[in-house]
Amino acid sequence: MKISRRHAASAAIAALGLLSLAPRAQANDAASYPTKPITIVYPYASGGASDTLARQVADVISKSLGQPVIVDPKPGAGGSTALEMVTRAPADGYTLVLSASGTMAVNPHIYNLKYKPVEDLAPITILAEIPFTVVINSSFPAQNLKEFIAYAKANPGKVSFANAGIGTQAHLTQVMFMKAAGITANIVPYKGGVPASTDLLGGHVDAMIDNAAAQVANVQAGKVRALFVTTQERSASLPRVPTADEAGLPGFVTSGWFGLAAPRGTSQAIIDKLNAVIVKGMSQPEMRRKMIEAGWMPLGDSPSDATTRARGDLARFGALVQQIELKKE
């Protein structure tokens, strides 16, 4: 069947018209969004430091957009259960997930996932960066990092060194630290940071690597001794704890982060709207104070910067997992 030039031209004009309507439709969706409650799926069990962060951000969004924001815990598989659920949710801005460097950049190398986090989720922002810290039992015979390294070298493999689980970002950071310090230790993996911390406080293990936010209260109460933080600068919530550089381990810098993401395909207009209200809310002095006191380093970057960070970390941790030959579960 032949198509006349006139019909072809009309079809092309109609197609262009439909394309021009798409951005307008997205803008209209964002203008009315949200019209019902929003859910933030939380990938872990309730009660942790990041649970507080998720609820703080939910409060910011709710107050800014005038709809309830529900935090719904869905723990399992190191956070992967929740992320997979959100990748299958409608891409309409009403189902979001608390993302993290662990779930976005580490888990794909550890678990046989049915999805690809960086490709199947659309980052909205990185909410906060968080240093890791090495903490030791208050009775351990070392007062600082140099003494800890000296003790570990003099007693190879005898220091019991806990983490939140094999393949977690804490574990990978632990391996990086031991390599940088030139020490060997008896790595003791737990099913989560809370039981590991409980055993550290009880004197059942000598040391632990953990995110700094989870150890702020213990350090401040003198229950554990923090040797250093892994970020370039000191943590405002632990101002007396040195960086690795200051403690005698130059160049050892790494950190974790928590963010917010939506299913891939969510309109850019909605993502930008969420980003704007979150960044504005996090910049308020009271919100920043609460986050800093809890051990977080407030960030609030753009969707494109958050995506770049996630992709970069995915490659970086992939190389480390290969190096230490971790097998997928």
Rank of each mutant, 00 (worst) to 15 (best):
Q67L: 03
V194Y: 11
N137I: 07
G167L: 00
S101I: 05
N163Y: 10
G102A: 13
P108N: 03
Q174I: 10
V159W: 00
S64L: 04
P108E: 00
S139L: 11
A164P: 01
V71A: 02
V134K: 11
A122C: 09
Q143N: 15
P75H: 03
S99L: 03
L113R: 04
L172E: 05
P131N: 09
S99K: 03
F161L: 11
P75W: 02
N163W: 02
E84C: 08
D120V: 07
G165E: 12
L113W: 09
D92Y: 00
I149V: 15
P108L: 01
K179F: 09
A82N: 00
K114H: 15
V134T: 14
P123G: 07
P108C: 02
A122M: 12
E119P: 02
A180H: 09
H171C: 07
I124C: 08
G93H: 01
I130E: 12
V134L: 15
M176Q: 15
E147K: 09
V69D: 00
K63S: 13
F161G: 05
A154H: 09
Y94E: 03
G165I: 06
K63E: 09
K74D: 08
I166M: 14
G66P: 04
S101K: 14
S62L: 07
M85E: 13
I187M: 12
V175E: 15
G193N: 15
G192R: 05
I187K: 10
P75C: 02
T168W: 01
K74R: 14
A82M: 02
P156K: 08
A100K: 00
S80I: 02
A164H: 01
H171N: 15
V134E: 12
Y115C: 09
P73F: 01
A185L: 06
L96G: 01
T168G: 14
A89C: 04
K179Q: 13
A152R: 02
M104S: 05
Q169L: 14
I136Y: 02
V118E: 12
S138F: 08
V86T: 06
V194T: 14
G182N: 12
L113F: 12
L127C: 07
S160V: 07
D72Q: 13
Q143S: 15
S101M: 12
I183F: 03
A150T: 12
G165N: 07
S62W: 02
A89N: 04
Y94M: 04
V135A: 15
K114D: 14
T95D: 06
L121D: 08
A122F: 10
Q143E: 15
Y151R: 08
Y190K: 11
T103S: 11
D72C: 04
P108H: 07
N107D: 11
A164D: 13
I187H: 09
E84V: 09
K153T: 06
V106Q: 03
E119I: 13
A89T: 02
N137R: 08
K116N: 15
V135Q: 11
L145Y: 13
G193P: 13
A89D: 04
G182I: 11
Y111H: 13
T133P: 01
L145D: 11
Y151P: 00
A128Q: 05
A180L: 08
Y190W: 11
V134D: 12
R88Y: 06
G76D: 01
L121Y: 08
K179D: 15
S80Y: 06
N186K: 14
N137W: 11
G93C: 01
G192A: 08
G192C: 13
T81P: 04
K74Y: 12
S160Y: 03
K158H: 08
A162N: 03
T125N: 10
